[in-house]
């Protein structure tokens, strides 16, 4: 009878396989990820049964801020933070249409429209450095008057200032102007600029490629997206935002004849098809 030998077992666990798995997972996430675009404020979109996806490229997003649900500064009302408007643009997938370049063109065009209708004392001019800052920011919302001052700041400062919904300089001014050819408000100037620039790009692209008008219609560019399919402009608003606030934006878009657009929502099933839980 031999003694029962107790074998000393090492507690060392081989982590190689585990490491392999994690690296694979990591690769997957790195390749599939599209980073969340930085937005000045967080909105919770309402849910809908519509299954159409938000396009990745050629999209103008109009963000409407919601009433502050967080900590409200003393002496302020939560609804003061509501209805601030921001515009962002993401460019085409095509390398010839890089977003910053188009953003720069839009800025130039918008300034042209603004200066044409502004009084002499209110006309603005931007330096190249300021324009560069504009091209680098994803989403901006401020009046034209304040634009030079804002763009003189550093990117971090701009982020901080734009994130403050109580700041009177935050948000693109909007009013009830209904005359397309009259004195446009700042929001309408941007709309006009987006339209003009996208049309210009569309026409140039068509001539460059030697296409006829009919053939050019099939180009998957911003111009078609905003005039034909209505996928080019997306309105992103919080589910608790009052309709009147959203209506103002609708109305301004209608005035500028950009009456086809989409509303950003989150998916829900037909069975639920009602507001999501808070």
């Amino acid at each position: 009878m031999g003694k029962v030998k107790i074998k000393k077992k090492s507690t060392f666990i081989d982590m190689t396989a585990m490491s392999d798995v994690t690296v694979l997972l990591l690769t997957f996430f790195m390749l599939t990820s599209t980073f969340l675009q930085k937005e000045p404020t967080i909105v919770y979109t309402p849910s809908s049964v519509s299954e159409e996806k938000v396009p990745v490229s050629n999209l103008v997003t109009i963000l409407i801020s919601s009433a502050d649900k967080g900590k409200v500064p003393e002496g302020k009302d939560a609804t003061e933070a509501e209805g601030k408007i921001f515009i962002s643009f993401s460019g085409g997938m095509d390398s010839t249409q890089v977003a910053p370049v188009i953003r720069g063109k839009m800025l130039d065009e918008a300034l042209k429209v603004y200066n044409a209708q502004a009084k002499d004392s209110k006309k603005i001019a931007l330096t190249d450095a300021q324009k560069k800052v504009f091209q680098e920011t994803n989403m901006l919302g401020t009046s034209f008057e304040y634009l030079p001052e804002l763009l003189s700041k550093s990117l971090t400062e701009i982020d901080k200032e734009q994130g403050d919904m109580y700041n009177p300089n935050t948000g693109i001014p909007i009013d009830g102007n209904k005359d397309k050819n009259g004195h446009l408000n700042d929001f309408q100037i941007w709309c006009r600029a987006i339209y003009t620039v996208s049309k210009e790009l569309h026409d140039n692209m068509a001539t460059d490629m030697g296409l006829t008008v009919d053939e050019a219609k099939t180009l998957g560019d911003l111009y078609n997206a905003i005039t034909k399919d209505g996928t080019g402009i997306a309105i992103k608003a919080d589910k608790d935002t009052p309709f009147t606030t959203v209506e103002t934006v609708f109305d301004n878009l209608q005035t500028m004849s950009l009456n086809k657009f989409s509303l950003m929502t989150a998916l829900t099933s037909e069975e639920e098809a009602a507001p999501a839980k808070h």
Partner: peptide, 21 residues
């Protein structure tokens, strides 16, 4: 990466309004 990615893309709802003209 999991926290930074947007796996679920937002949906959109098409809306066509009449012009103000």
């Amino acid at each position: 990466f999991m926290l930074c990615t947007t796996m679920i893309k937002s949906q959109t709802l098409q809306l066509t309004l009449p012009t103000n003209e």
